[in-house]
């Protein structure tokens, strides 16, 4: 689809790619009205007018430029908002970044401005989702002493949580896997690396590892945890509305205490 002023750009859907895109905009003095990932383009009705090639040097220069103009926290916010993967998030980000570069005064705390406030709100949602991984991830111990957990976060927030797990579980091997995006991180007591399973012994409907690779004590610990969870509830205070608000149904699948 090509209408009068539309200008569709495509990129590789990485953060580096997006920063390279910003660089190109300023270099060729053109700004897209639509930004799509290469694969998204195939299923859309748009045609590409320009393709951005990811370039580490360009990306670094833009990132440096941002860090000079705004606080570290606001820079992080840009990355978080990118991870939301919301529709047309690239346009919001581009507009925000342009405002930062183009306006003479620092606008990062001007919450009277709608896009500044919108960034803040999305940032909050993304951080909240990352926090929920930290809260709700349940590790299952395998026979070869790896603690495995799968999760299906709404946003692509796994990278925001690995530092926490590395610090906390430094003396155990673990894997956290995003079943929705089909990738995860593996920590082997020394290093952490990104992994993708081609074949796995994890049941996709429950996120549970197969009994054949489960550690001996695993089922007993699950039982213990369920018993604890049920006993800790005060019946006089039961409040399903509150329960659901704090622990929405979409997380139940991977929660040991909710598996019957």
């Amino acid at each position: 689809m090509k209408t009068g002023n539309s200008n569709t750009w495509i990129y590789d859907k990485t953060f580096e790619g997006l920063l390279s895109l910003v660089f190109d905009c300023y270099e060729i003095k053109q700004f897209p009205s639509k930004i799509l990932g290469k694969t998204e383009l195939q299923t859309s009705m748009f045609t590409a007018d320009y393709e951005v090639i990811s370039d580490e040097i360009k990306a670094k220069r833009v990132w440096k430029g941002l860090n000079k103009k705004i606080s570290k926290l606001s820079c992080e916010m840009i990355y978080h908002v990118f991870l939301s993967e919301m529709e047309d998030i690239e346009i919001l980000l581009l507009n925000y970044i342009r405002k930062i570069f183009d306006s003479p005064e620092n606008i990062e705390y001007n919450f009277r401005n709608e896009s500044v406030l919108k960034m803040l709100k999305i940032n909050k949602k993304v951080k909240r989702e990352a926090q929920r991984i930290i809260m709700f991830v349940r590790f299952q111990k395998t026979a070869d002493d790896i603690y495995y957990a799968s999760f299906e976060p709404k946003y692509n927030v796994l990278p925001l949580t690995t530092k926490h797990f590395k610090d906390r579980f430094a003396d155990q091997k673990w894997i956290i896997y995003d079943m929705k995006r089909n990738y995860g991180f593996y920590y082997d007591l020394e290093n952490m690396s990104e992994v993708t399973f081609t074949e796995s012994l994890v049941d996709t409907s429950s996120g549970q590892i197969d009994k054949s690779i489960m550690a001996q004590s695993e089922e007993f610990f699950r039982e213990l945890w369920k018993t604890y969870f049920d006993s800790a509830c005060i019946k006089e205070r039961i409040n399903p509305r509150l329960h659901m608000q704090f622990m929405p149904k979409r997380f139940w699948k991977h929660l040991t205490e909710k598996q019957r």
């Binding site: 809260m135 969870f229 800790a232 509830c233 019946k235 509305r241 704090f246 622990m247």
Partner: peptide
């Protein structure tokens, strides 16, 4: 302070 679960009465575990 991280809550890891919520009991049916809505309290943080």
């Amino acid at each position: 302070g991280i809550c890891h679960s919520f009991t049916d009465d809505g309290r943080c575990v």
